[in-house]
């Protein structure tokens, strides 16, 4: 067994443990419905985390994603309510998200600025622009939302009289995870991202167009965050420019728990999915349990982070010790 997959194995183990514990203590926990809901409810975190995974693998960080999601929801809500077709609105906002990310990436690579500060500025900027569009929660009223999206849910099983369906949000998540995996493992872009994060100087000497790749990485993250914003509108059916403050940290945590190295060069989209599911199942466990308090989730997540970071640190030390 190759030791570099160790973090991934631990993640899978922790996820299995959590689900197992859930199944042991609560009947119905490991039901089709609960698992599907786990995917559906955490879809937007997952989609964001896919982009974040690429950014972190490249050795950067993107703090702007939560604001971009909020901006997206309010943009869609406002434009749709003003008569634009949702699909047009989504296409428009996806392009905006891509551009926004690319501009951040340009500042980072062209001026060689710290990603932390540039995306911090991006975070404030996107949040502010969202507020300018509308600073209250706006419900989206359009048949596309009330009918079409619901109709896209795929029925998969019959439990008693109820039909279990995979909601469109979960489908989106699966689509992005598959797409992200493909991009990370089967495209030159993906391999170049790994190369930059692992050793930027070497990558440059080996002919990787470092600056271009960085711009694309942040553009991808902007795109994913916008897509996550679209996913949010599917099940919230509303837009709110003040929502999801702090979500970027969930996305980062999911990536780290999923085995992505915060210093860059290592990471798996599949791991990130597991990270998202771990975060989600901790939430569900607490909901199921009822009396267990929310703060244990935070402490537990912090402990998990510590565990994963320590394992990575030890692995790294061992490599350096050679």
């Amino acid at each position: 067994m190759n030791s570099r997959y160790l973090p991934l194995v631990i993640t899978a183990f922790v996820l299995a443990l959590l689900l197992g514990a859930g199944g042991f203590f609560f009947t119905n926990f490991i039901s089709f419905r609960v698992i599907i809901n786990l995917f559906g409810d955490n879809a937007f975190v997952g989609v964001t985390a896919v982009g974040m995974t690429f950014v972190i693998i490249s050795g950067g960080i993107d703090l702007s994603v939560a604001s971009v999601i909020a901006f997206t929801t309010i943009f869609i809500a406002q434009t749709v309510n003003n008569g634009m077709h949702p699909l047009v609105s989504m296409a428009l906002v996806l392009i905006l998200g891509l551009l926004f990310g690319a501009i951040q990436g340009w500042f980072i690579s062209y001026f060689n600025l710290p990603p932390f500060l540039v995306t911090l500025a991006g975070m404030f900027f996107a949040r502010g622009v969202g507020f300018i569009i509308n600073d209250i929660s706006v419900a989206i009223k359009h048949p596309f939302y009330s009918e079409t999206i619901r109709g896209l849910a795929i029925p998969v099983a019959q439990v008693g009289r109820a039909v279990v369906r995979i909601p469109f949000t979960a489908q989106c998540l699966i689509f992005f995870i598959l797409g992200g995996t493909l991009l990370a493992a089967y495209s030159r872009f993906g391999r170049n991202v790994y190369a930059i994060g692992s050793n930027e100087t070497s990558a440059r000497l080996m002919g990787v167009p470092v600056d271009q790749i960085k711009i694309w990485v942040y553009a991808l993250s902007g795109f994913c965050a916008t897509a996550a914003g679209c996913v949010v509108t599917f099940y919230m059916q509303s837009g709110n420019s003040s929502s999801f403050v702090g979500l970027e940290m969930d996305a980062i945590a999911a990536a780290v728990i999923g085995g992505t190295l915060l210093t860059g060069g290592v990471g798996w989209v599949a791991g990130t999915l597991m990270g998202v599911l771990i975060l989600g199942s901790i939430q569900s466990l607490i909901t199921f349990q009822g009396s267990l308090n929310n703060w244990w989730a935070k402490i537990f997540i912090g402990t998990l982070l510590f565990l994963f970071i320590s394992v990575q640190q030890l692995l790294n030390r061992r490599l350096k010790g050679r």
Binding site: M249, I252, W295, W296, A297, K298, I301, G302, L305, I309
Partner: peptide, 22 residues
């Protein structure tokens, strides 16, 4: 431990609020 500062302090950033609520 030599963990990069942004990573190291992220742990307490996440867990700290839980501790406060505890």
């Amino acid at each position: 431990m030599g963990i990069p500062p942004m990573v190291a302090t992220l742990i307490l950033m996440v867990a700290g609020r839980g501790v406060a609520q505890l």
